[in-house]
């Protein structure tokens, strides 16, 4: 008679996350080998050392981190996985950096479905592959049921700033044009309309996408770009107010050309929310000398999948009213575009 000395917990018998998946033992290893390694699949990660080792090309290193919590985890057009990869890739790209390597830290709630985790990991892998980056190190922790909302993901990213490029929100100059790469508010409204309690039907999908290929093409042709940012939380309003305040310039937008999909506008009006305050996850706002604006616009159009991409030159940087963003309305009057207050709350009627 032989005695089995292995840990008696069989492989992948569990269908949900257990506390032991984060305890560093057999179940943790199983999670890594059955879910993370096959999808993230790169030599750097495969060694399973406590750290990733890689060689970076010479230059200024860009380093960023972001933590992703979203409800619902799966929404029309994406999920928390591609959001976590695209968000960090984009934060590097808008600094003029070429993104190379990402880390991924997971906080998982006890009882979270393994099939959902695998779906999320797969969409992270797909997004990384699309953006040309590798997820080279990671970590998993499990918390008791009720201590997190299914899954939280942190990603950090490392890239190298392209030579000769100096984009910063401090660099806007009067005479710059403001160009946006597509329609505004898609992501935030896709998530909001998918939430419990606001159940109305819509076909709005998130715009989550990596922007590094488009941005690289813009910088190839227009290295004199002054500032770039992806207008995520707080939407276009927050980004432009930060630009205006950091560079102490004024910004004037033309209401008539602001690109918003009709269904997004309709949902926003129904809920009493300004689409300019709503998050985007696959759009970039560029400030560049006016003479370059049409080139930037053309490259944005060339790199857009959507038939009606919505890329547009939406305004200009001026010397007047430093720190303030003004909208010229379609009627010819003017109003202030304020920094949004915080959480977007639907109104009564």
């Amino acid at each position: 008679m032989s005695i089995e000395l292995r840990c008696p917990v069989p492989l992948l018998k569990h269908e949900t996350i257990q506390m032991a998946h984060g305890a560093g033992g057999r179940l943790s290893r199983e999670l890594t080998q059955k879910i993370f390694l096959p999808h993230f699949n790169n030599s750097c990660l495969a060694s399973l050392d406590d750290q990733a080792k890689f060689v970076l090309e010479e230059g200024t290193v860009a380093f960023t981190t972001d933590t992703f919590v979203v409800s619902p985890l799966f929404f029309p057009g994406g999920d928390i996985g591609d959001l976590a990869v695209n968000g960090t890739v984009n934060d590097l790209a808008v600094g003029g950096a070429t993104p190379f390597y990402l880390s991924a830290g997971f906080v998982l709630e006890e009882g979270f479905a393994l099939t959902d985790l695998e779906k999320i990991v797969k969409s992270m892998a797909d997004a990384a592959s699309k953006a040309g980056v590798q997820i080279v190190t990671g970590d998993t922790k499990v918390v008791q049921k009720g201590q997190c909302d299914g899954i939280f993901i942190n990603t950090s990213g490392i890239g190298v700033v392209r030579k000769g490029i100096a984009v910063s929100c401090l660099n806007l100059r009067p005479g710059d044009s403001i160009i946006v790469s597509g329609t505004l508010g898609d992501h935030g409204m896709a998530v909001m309309t998918a939430r419990e309690g606001l159940s109305f039907q819509s076909d709005i999908t998130s715009d989550t996408a990596s922007l590094n290929v488009m941005i690289s093409a813009i910088l190839d042709e227009v290295p004199e770009v002054h500032a770039m940012r992806d207008p995520t939380r707080g939407g276009l309003s927050a980004t432009l107010n930060e630009f205006a305040s950091a560079s102490q310039v004024g910004i004037v937008l033309d209401e008539a050309v602001l690109p918003v999909r009709p269904d997004v506008l309709g949902a926003c009006e129904l809920l009493g929310i300004d689409p300019l305050n709503v998050a985007n996850e696959g759009k970039v706002v560029v400030a560049a000398p006016a003479g370059c604006a049409k080139t930037v616009l053309r490259i944005m159009q060339e790199h857009s999948d959507a038939a009606e991409h919505g890329a547009a030159i939406i305004g200009e940087v001026v010397e007047d009213h430093p720190g303030m963003v003004i909208i010229r309305t379609v009627l010819g009057s003017r109003r202030i575009l304020e920094m949004p207050l915080g959480e977007q709350l639907p109104r009564i009627c």
């Binding site: 309305t329 379609v330 009627l331 010819g332 009057s333 003017r334 109003r335 109104r347 009564i348 009627c349």
Partner: peptide, 22 residues
């Protein structure tokens, strides 16, 4: 929002009423 008050002739004064439930 539309700046209608800026565009109206000066003789017309708009007063904002109590019709906001909040």
């Amino acid at each position: 929002r539309n700046g209608i008050d800026q565009l109206l002739p000066d003789q017309i004064q708009l007063i904002h009423g109590p019709g906001c439930p909040v």
